[in-house]
Simulated scan of single mutants.
Amino acid sequence: MKGEIQCDNDERVATDIQSVKDKPANRMYADYFYWSINGTRPSTPSKLSENEKIKWYLLYDTNDNIAVRSRERVWYRDYLLAEMFAEDGFSLSTHCKIEVFCSN
């Protein structure tokens, strides 16, 4: 699954993701996985809004964890970071890990 972070403070988001890159995901539901971090969401509004054509999002959840959720599980207090696109055959599991790549 891949996506591009759409946030004014993408360096801080990248740092949050790097802090959990070697940790497996926690599973809340079949379509909601998260990584506990010691961070906080950006103070500026998210640049993204829900799009019915997008199935998955990377976000800060209501507990300020980094999470991947299906659109159906996005809540009004979540902070959307990226629209995510799954490759054919991709499936989420608690063995999945998260990583960030920076391109300039």
Rank of each mutant, 00 (worst) to 15 (best):
Y34K: 05
F85W: 11
L58Y: 04
Y32H: 07
Y34D: 05
K2P: 00
M1V: 12
R41H: 04
K47R: 11
E87T: 13
S70E: 11
Y60C: 03
D64I: 05
D31H: 09
D88R: 14
D88G: 13
L58Q: 01
K23C: 02
I37H: 01
W35N: 02
E99H: 06
T15Q: 13
V68H: 03
K21G: 06
D88C: 09
K2W: 08
T94K: 12
D10G: 08
S93G: 12
V68G: 04
D16F: 09
L80Q: 03
A25W: 06
R41M: 05
F90Y: 14
F85H: 15
Y60T: 00
I98F: 01
N26A: 07
E50H: 08
V20K: 01
I37E: 03
Q6K: 06
V13S: 02
Y79L: 00
K53W: 04
D78F: 05
K23M: 09
L58A: 09
M28W: 15
M1K: 09
F90E: 15
K47G: 07
K53A: 14
Y57W: 09
V68D: 08
N104W: 06
E72W: 13
E83P: 05
Y34N: 04
D64Y: 07
A30Y: 12
T40A: 14
I37A: 04
E99F: 06
E72G: 08
N104F: 09
N9M: 04
T15F: 13
D64H: 05
R12W: 10
D61I: 02
P45K: 02
S91W: 14
V20P: 00
S93F: 03
F85L: 12
R12M: 12
K21A: 07
A14H: 02
N63I: 06
K47C: 04
I54F: 10
D61C: 00
N104T: 11
L81Y: 00
E87N: 13
